[in-house]
C-alpha cells in the first residue's frame, strides 16, 4: 500500500511538472474596486478595462493567468511579498514607486480632474477652495498632487474610490479629485452620480502623474517586465487593445 502511494505521488508530481512547463502560470494583482477599470459584478466576477487588458496580455504572452484581488494600499507590499507577480491596476508610473518596483511601458494615460455637485458653485480658485473638503484615494498620485498643490483644502483620504463616492453622495465632502475616466464612468454616468459633474482643468503634470499607467513587477523580474511591454505593443498592433478600448471609452486612452 505504501509503495503504491509513493508511486502515485511520484506520478502525480511528474504530471504536474510536465503540465507546468507546457504552460507557465502568472498571478496578477488587481484592485476590483475602481470602475470602469476594475470592479466586481453582482455575481462576483471581476470586470473592467484592467481585467480585460490583463487577460489579453496573458493570451498574447501565451501564459495561464490567475487574477488576485488586493486592496489598493497594500497592493505593492503584496507584490513584494510574492502574493502575485505583476500588478495591472491602473497604477501610474512614478519616481517614488520606481524605488520599490519596476514598470512595463504604459498601457494607458488619462488626466486627473475635480468632481463637484452640479449646483454647488465651487470653482478652482484659491478663495473658493479655502476650507473645502476634498476626497481622494489614499496613497494615489492624486493624493500626492492634492497634498502638494492645494494646501488650503481639508483632505479626506479613503481606502477605495467607492467609499469616496459614498461620502460624496452623503454630502460629507465638497469635491473629489481622481482620474477623469474613472470618475466619469465609475460615478458620473451611473444613477448615483447623475447630479455630479467633472469640472476645471485637466491635470497631467508628469512630476505628479508620471508617464501613464504601467504594469508593476518586482525589480528583479526584468525579463517578465520586458515580456509584458512586448505584449502591450502586441495587443496595440493586432487590434485587441482597440476592441477593448472601444467597449469602455469614446476615444483612445493609450
Amino acid at each position: 500500500m505504501k509503495k503504491f502511494l509513493v508511486a502515485a505521488v511520484a506520478a502525480a508530481m511528474t504530471f504536474t511538472a510536465g503540465s507546468a512547463s507546457a504552460q507557465e502560470e502568472l498571478r496578477i494583482g488587481v484592485e476590483g474596486a475602481y470602475p470602469p477599470f476594475s470592479s466586481v459584478d453582482p455575481s462576483g466576477n471581476l470586470i473592467g478595462f484592467d481585467i480585460e487588458i490583463a487577460n489579453a496580455i496573458c493570451d498574447e504572452m501565451k501564459v495561464k493567468c490567475t487574477l488576485v484581488t488586493q486592496d489598493w494600499d497594500g497592493i505593492i507590499p503584496a507584490l513584494l511579498a510574492k502574493k502575485y507577480d505583476a500588478i495591472i491596476a491602473s497604477m501610474s508610473i512614478t519616481e517614488e514607486r520606481k524605488q520599490k518596483v519596476d514598470f512595463s511601458e504604459k498601457y494607458y494615460n488619462t488626466p486627473a480632474r475635480f468632481l463637484r455637485k452640479k449646483d454647488s458653485g465651487i470653482e478652482i480658485t484659491a478663495e473658493s477652495l479655502e476650507g473645502k473638503s476634498v476626497g481622494v484615494q489614499r496613497g494615489t498620485i492624486h493624493d500626492t498632487f492634492l497634498t502638494a498643490e492645494f494646501p488650503n483644502v481639508d483632505i479626506k483620504r479613503y481606502g477605495t474610490q467607492d467609499e469616496a463616492y459614498l461620502d460624496m453622495t452623503a454630502g460629507r465632502v465638497d469635491l473629489l479629485l481622481a482620474d477623469s475616466i474613472a470618475m466619469d464612468d465609475g460615478f458620473v454616468k451611473t444613477d448615483a452620480g447623475k447630479d455630479y459633474e467633472l469640472f476645471g482643468p485637466s491635470y497631467s503634470e508628469p512630476k505628479y502623474f508620471g508617464d501613464g499607467a504601467g504594469i508593476a513587477v518586482r525589480k528583479e523580474d526584468t525579463d517578465l517586465r520586458d515580456r509584458l511591454s512586448a505584449a502591450i505593443k502586441g495587443i496595440r498592433a493586432n487590434g485587441v487593445y482597440k476592441s477593448i478600448n472601444d467597449k469602455y471609452f469614446d476615444f483612445d486612452i493609450y
Binding site: W72, D73, E96, K100, G139, D143, T144, R157, G159, D167
Partner: peptide, 22 residues
C-alpha cells in the same frame, strides 16, 4: 482610521501608502 479620520493608525496608513514602508 477606516472612516477617513487621521488618528495614530490613520497617520500610519498615510505614511505606509506614501512610502510603501509598512
Amino acid at each position: 482610521s477606516t472612516i477617513t479620520l487621521v488618528d495614530l493608525t490613520g497617520a500610519a496608513r498615510i505614511v505606509q501608502s506614501r512610502y510603501y514602508a509598512p
